[in-house]
Amino acid sequence: MTNEQMTSSETEPTDDQPAPTPGTDGLTDTADSGGETTTDRTLLEARDLNVYYGEEQALSDVDIEIPEKQVTAVIGPSGCGKSTFLRCINRMNDLVDSARVEGELRFDGKNVYDDDVDPVALRRKIGMVFQSPNPFPKSIRDNVAYGLKVQGKDDGDVDAKVRTALERAALLEEVEDQLDASGLDLSGGQQQRLCIARAIAPDPDVILMDEPASALDPVATSKIEDLIEDLAEEYTVVIVTHNMQQAARISDKTAVFLTGGELVEFDDTDKIFENPEHERVEDYITGKFG
């Protein structure tokens, strides 16, 4: 299916949201749907979301509403389904043969699992940063430009966009004089920020991060955490982390998944870490379980 073949006829406004602008890829453009200030408008929404890998259930009846332009952290013990949930959002699980998704995952009101949604187009709007920095064996400039070229946003002003993306990723100052050097020559923390620059170059709406700082030292981690908070001024950030303290430090909302892929509690981060509703969540965050 090509972008041109897609329709947006199934895009419907919800009661409290304005009608989205139809796109040609089955998705909508959220660029004008809000200012650059923090809002409580829901951008991502899961309803009765179940995911199976073969016979094994990885997510169980997940309902969640993730607000726009805020940092939402997803925490939980190993195997709780937090990465599975993240990968559902931009359909990365499509790449796993045994994965089966039931229920709905709405991005700006549109179910991303509808037949008319192109996963590649979806991933332009919902970028991803992985645990280990994975720059291409190319120059710093080309690493960032790659995101623009592949995703069809190379309109001739690549250099300016590369610099903007590097600046937003808090890396430009450190690499300004070596844009033609290999991305692989950078430190681990710089490589991860390069990957973030690559992810934000096409100007997505959402940035998914899967343990983005777990392979970094404390100083590099600090820089990434600062960056994540800054990014939330323009993007909706969903971060999976096994580091509860990191979730506490940087997120506005926290989702706690526990065994069996169950979303046990989702609330403001200060509520989760100061007075959670569920005893199981209290046990998990205080280290009595997990």
Binding site: A248, R249, T269, D270, F273, E274
Partner: peptide, 9 residues
């Protein structure tokens, strides 16, 4: 103060 203690370690 409680927020700083709980959230920032």
């Amino acid at each position: 103060c409680i927020d700083l203690l709980a959230l920032q370690q």
